[in-house]
């Protein structure tokens, strides 16, 4: 039996139905790292689903081809009489998944390289212009508005304006720096690059759009949680407010501010961690989801 219809249905569900369900769920903000992993599992699952669906659609007659490697080899199943032109169908069947894989890999490489180049250029300039503070383990730039950001990567930098040092209390400053260190230690830029790369390939797909936005928000929450290990929620929340409020005039045009409100309410509110059993089941689903399309395409041979 050809698995194409099932694969198409499954892939469509992952690409269109799963994102709104995950968006509406309450648990992701309580376990942001796990939720970010689930979004990435969906990205992987969707990619594999599309590749296998394309393969099965292009090779409806399901004959074994010597050129198919490893996984795909076992997915063709049943040696049967060929179609009208087995060679063309075969080549197409292999070419489509390969093209998709290449596009995704190229997109990821493009985003990683471009981001790294931008960071290197920025870091060299920051090192010249700024003053490194050994006490804060950050680079201080003369700038009239309290602000902070980080340059993740191998030679990471935390950049902070001198206004932030003047205007924030030591506790607030420490909480902000801990947040930024959380981004760097967690290598969050790589997870963002994956979501960005997927979005470049599947631009209009709901999964791509939501995964990119949610990854960014969830990673901010992960960094917030890291800061909260050592610092009070009051310090982090008021620092967030101070920095957001100070930047309003020049950034009034920009969108995305509502994410700060979500984070602030989360930081101030109760943050009960999900039950370990629930956490475990979600983690199991996150691991299983990328494997599902393979199970559909290559059912274990019975009997």
């Amino acid at each position: 039996m050809n698995a194409a219809p099932v694969l198409v249905g499954y892939t469509a569900a992952v690409g269109f139905v799963a994102p709104p369900l995950l968006l509406r769920a309450a648990w992701p903000h309580r376990a942001p790292a796990l939720a970010a992993a689930v979004w990435h599992a969906l990205l992987v699952s969707f990619s594999i689903g599309v590749a296998l669906a394309a393969y099965n659609l292009a090779a409806p007659t399901e004959h074994l081809h010597a050129g198919l490697v490893g996984l795909l080899h076992s997915c063709g199943l049943h040696v049967g009489p060929g179609g009208p032109d087995p060679d063309t169908a075969d080549r197409l069947a292999v070419a489509l998944p390969v093209a998709l894989g290449t596009a995704l890999a190229a997109s990821l490489a493009f985003h990683v390289v471009r981001a790294r180049r931008a960071r290197t250029r920025h870091r060299e300039a920051v090192d010249l212009v700024g003053r490194h503070s050994a006490r804060l383990r950050a680079t201080v730039l003369p700038y009239g508005v309290p602000a902070a950001y980080c340059l993740p990567g191998r030679r990471a930098r935390i950049v902070i304006s001198d206004a932030a040092i003047r205007e924030l209390t030591p506790e607030q400053l420490a909480a902000v720096l801990a947040h930024e260190r959380g981004h760097i230690a967690g290598r969050h830029h790589l997870a963002l690059a994956v979501a960005e790369a997927f979005h470049s390939v599947f631009r209009r797909l709901p999964l791509a759009r939501h995964a990119r936005e949610q990854t960014a928000l969830l990673l901010e929450m992960v960094a917030d949680d890291r800061a909260l290990r050592r610092h009070s929620s009051a310090a982090l929340a008021t620092a967030m407010y101070e920095m957001a409020a100070a930047r309003t005039p020049r950034g009034a045009f920009a969108a995305g501010g509502h994410t700060v409100l979500i984070r602030l309410q989360r930081v101030l509110g109760p943050r009960p961690a999900p039950h370990p059993a629930f956490w475990g089941s979600v983690a199991a689903v996150a691991v299983a989801v990328p494997l599902l399309p393979l199970l559909v395409a290559c059912p274990p041979v019975l009997g």
């Binding site: 985003h111 471009r114 981001a115 790294r116 931008a118 960071r119 920025h122 602000a147 902070a148 950001y149 980080c150 340059l151 993740p152 902000v176 947040h179 930024e180 981004h183 969050h188 830029h189 963002l192 690059a193 960005e196 990673l219 967030m240 920095m243 957001a244 409020a245 930047r247 309003t248 020049r250 950034g251 009034a252 045009f253 920009a254 995305g256 501010g257 994410t259 700060v260």
Partner: peptide, 13 residues
């Protein structure tokens, strides 16, 4: 791009 991560987004009043 994903190059830089900043502490808070720009916000409206």
């Amino acid at each position: 791009s994903a190059a830089l991560v900043h502490f808070v987004e720009n916000m409206s009043e």
